[in-house]
Amino acid sequence: MVRILILGTGSMAVNHAESFRAAPGASVVAAIETDATRREAFGKQFGITNLFADIESAIAWGEFDAVANVTPDAVHYPTTMRLLAAGKHVFCEKPLATDYPLALEMAETAEAKGLINMVNFTYRNSPALQKARELVVAGAIGEVRHFEASYLQSWLVGKQWGDWRTESRWLWRLSEEHGSKGVLGDVGVHIVDFATYGADSAVANVDSRLRTFHKAEGDRIGDYKLDANDSVVMTAELANGALGTITATRFATGHANDLTLRLFGTAGAIEVKTDGKASSLRSCTGADIDTQVWKDVPCPPVPTTYERFVQACNTGVNGDPSFRRAAEVQRVLDLCFAQEAARALNAASPATAG
């Protein structure tokens, strides 16, 4: 039985606590939260009596085996490194770190210590994505030649999750000063993993465009400067030679939270759709290629990332997605940020006379 500590008690921590409590072979035994009011409320909600204000106090207590790190993005690196030094397994929220070098250091440290390390790419929980990858690996659609991947949200248009103009829990996601990496860092990390996992191939080359749209007078609301990117478009080549696009936006009117992956191969094609809850898979293979007929593919249930982490801790065999996998995804995001920075620098440079 793996004893789990929850680090951070924000809204996502509720999902972690509920999921780990429901997972066979695990128990949630403690939590860390700097804010006393939130700490006590979280403990009461989940019946947790071992509550700590900081990591050092929890480590000194020591009666836990693994940690679900649900802190803000910029805090993932220092907190995880401290926990790894203490010999604790870590299940970290995405993104693993704010840049590739830090993410790689986290992966290498966990591996060197022989500790279980996984990242919560929640859309791996989609039975359709898991089945799609299985079909690709089995050669059911031949060699992948082209792909299209998109993550579409519309909370900058509608109010399905609240009003971003007045709520800090959304405004911080639009401000680099408040730690946001924009749509690329927030959900781009998911769709890059979604696409490359489904295609069973890493990104070899990428060319990207980021865009921040005008959303308020002076591009600011109160303390929040609205400068984080809102949309991203990537043209990518995979290691298997496939060419395609990866896009993410918060301005996809009519789409609350929709991920789509289409893979086109020499012997067929598949399409995955999910909103994070329900998912579907359809394919066009065999004789259907000649008539462009698509058929639904049954997708059996799959273990969640939470359940896989628990299993990994109890067996000693690391699960997927690992820290190293998350670092590879971060490498792609860093390339996109670097390309945009270089483009902005070139645009700001005065023209040179010929």
Rank of each mutant, 00 (worst) to 15 (best):
S349W: 14
V136L: 06
N50V: 06
G182K: 07
D200W: 08
E340I: 05
N240G: 03
A68F: 07
L115T: 10
A74N: 14
S19Q: 08
K277Q: 13
A53V: 08
A22H: 04
H190F: 01
S57L: 09
E105D: 11
A23E: 02
I289P: 12
N50C: 15
G179M: 08
D186I: 09
F20L: 02
Y197F: 13
V136I: 09
P321Y: 09
F213H: 15
W170A: 09
A248L: 09
L333F: 10
L259A: 09
I270T: 02
L7T: 15
S231R: 11
V233A: 14
A199L: 09
A242W: 03
D275I: 04
N15Y: 06
H146C: 12
M106G: 01
R308H: 00
E176K: 15
G10K: 03
E176S: 12
V233M: 07
I59N: 04
H255D: 11
S126E: 01
T249C: 14
L156G: 05
T245Y: 09
D186K: 12
D258R: 08
D193C: 07
R262T: 14
N69D: 11
G265P: 15
Q160F: 09
W61D: 02
G179V: 05
R173V: 10
T266V: 06
N50E: 13
G139C: 02
T285P: 08
M106N: 00
A256D: 14
L7V: 14
E111G: 01
G47N: 00
S283Q: 12
A216S: 14
V293E: 07
N205D: 12
